[in-house]
Simulated assay, not measured.
Amino acid sequence: MILTAIVICEVAFWLAIIAGLSARYLFRRPGLGTALLIVAPVIDVILLALVTFDLLGGGTASWQHGLAAIYIGISVAYGKRMVAWADARFKHRFADGPPPEKLTGLRYTLKCWRDVLTTAAAVTVAAVILGAIIALVDDPRRTEALSGYFSILGIIFAIDLVWAVSYTFWPKAPATLPPHYADTHAPQNRH
Rank of each mutant, 00 (worst) to 15 (best):
T109P: 07
R89M: 06
E144K: 11
A86R: 04
I133K: 02
P99Q: 10
T104S: 14
W113M: 01
R114C: 06
P99N: 07
L136N: 09
A86C: 10
I133S: 01
V83C: 02
T143Y: 00
V125K: 04
Y108L: 10
V123P: 00
L130R: 04
L146S: 00
G148I: 10
C112Y: 03
R89I: 05
V137A: 03
M82L: 12
P98H: 08
A126C: 03
K102I: 15
A84H: 11
P98Y: 01
G97Q: 10
G148H: 09
L110M: 07
C112S: 14
K111G: 12
A126S: 08
A86S: 13
T118A: 09
A84I: 08
D139F: 00
E144M: 12
R107P: 04
G131N: 13
S147K: 14
G97A: 11
L130H: 04
E144T: 09
A135W: 12
A121L: 15
R93C: 09
K91D: 06
T124G: 15
A95V: 00
W113Q: 00
K91N: 15
A126V: 02
E101K: 15
T104I: 10
G105T: 12
V116L: 10
L117C: 06
L117V: 10
R142Y: 00
T109E: 04
A120L: 13
P140T: 11
R114E: 11
T109F: 05
A95W: 02
Y108E: 02
E101V: 15
V116T: 07
T143I: 08
D96E: 14
L146W: 00
S147V: 09
D115S: 09
V137N: 01
A95C: 05
R114Y: 10
G97C: 11
K91R: 14
A132N: 06
W85D: 04
A126Y: 01
A95S: 11
R89D: 02
P98S: 14
F90V: 01
T109L: 08
G97R: 09
W85R: 13
G131D: 03
V116R: 11
A135F: 07
Y108C: 05
R89L: 09
A127I: 05
T124C: 07
G105S: 10
A84F: 08
V116F: 10
M82R: 09
